[in-house]
Design a protein around this nucleic acid. Structure first.
Length: 202
DNA sequence: AACTTGGGCAACCGCCGTATT
DNA sequence: TAATACGGCGGTTGCCCAAGT
């Protein structure tokens, strides 16, 4: 396996590689990504194959700009879930976590006045300094900060769960306001159904 | 026309959790 | 139980291209 890893090609995929990967997945299905380089001769890591398939080649991936409804949903779900891009994407049909993340970082964070860390870092002379120029490391994901965050909104999720029946009855969209004021959630009629299914599948 | 700057996005990296051996 | 493999996630990087100078 190391041999394949070592000679792995990087960078953009070409049409031929896409075709090889698509044929493989259609024949064998997803999973066992690390077998792909061995079976197909593709000079890509299994990880890279998975990413390419998930983010680009999957037939139901929607291309192009986000609609207003999608944008609205991203904003609301982000306020609810934070940077849980995969969870957010799972509630927006046809959108991948990478798309949602990019959309947030390039469009919405700007629109909503969230400081772009990339630019912030540049402004700090290209060095991540302590204080204002600091950024959360990936380790913090499983650390105390996340724990506190999770605990803080889990009560709200419970509250939402208790409102199950009301959600299903309202054909004209929903608006929720939670007692501890952590967030408000509104859904349009179009998304009410899909949100319900996704949420209770958690 | 040449160069610089900044936005958009695909892809990579490093880490973590889970499954398997 | 420990080691290893694998899949998945979020953060970050770097390329491409259009707009501005």
């Amino acid at each position: 396996m190391e041999a394949y890893e070592n000679e792995s090609k990087k960078g953009f995929w070409n049409a031929e590689e896409d075709s090889v990967l698509t044929k493989y997945v259609k024949k064998h299905g997803t999973g066992k990504w690390n077998r792909i380089p061995k079976v197909t001769g593709l000079k890509r890591s299994g990880k890279s194959c998975r990413l390419r398939w998930m983010n680009y080649l999957t037939p139901d991936v929607k291309r192009g700009d986000f609609s207003e409804e999608e944008e609205d949903l991203v904003v609301r779900l982000h306020s609810l879930l934070g940077n849980r891009w995969s969870l957010i994407a799972g509630r927006i049909p046809g959108r991948t976590d990478n798309q949602v993340k990019n959309f947030w970082n390039t469009h919405l964070s700007k629109k909503l006045g969230v400081v772009d860390k990339k630019k912030k870092r540049k402004a700090c002379g290209g060095v991540e300094a302590e204080g204002d120029c600091n950024s959360a490391s990936s380790k913090e994901r499983s650390g105390e900060g996340e724990k506190l965050l999770h605990e803080s909104w889990s009560d709200d999720l419970m509250e939402l769960g208790n409102m199950h029946e009301e959600i299903m009855r309202d054909d004209f969209g929903c608006s929720f306001s939670f007692p501890n004021s952590l967030f408000d959630l509104c859904t349009s009629p179009y998304y009410t159904q899909s949100f319900h299914h996704s949420f209770f599948a958690l």
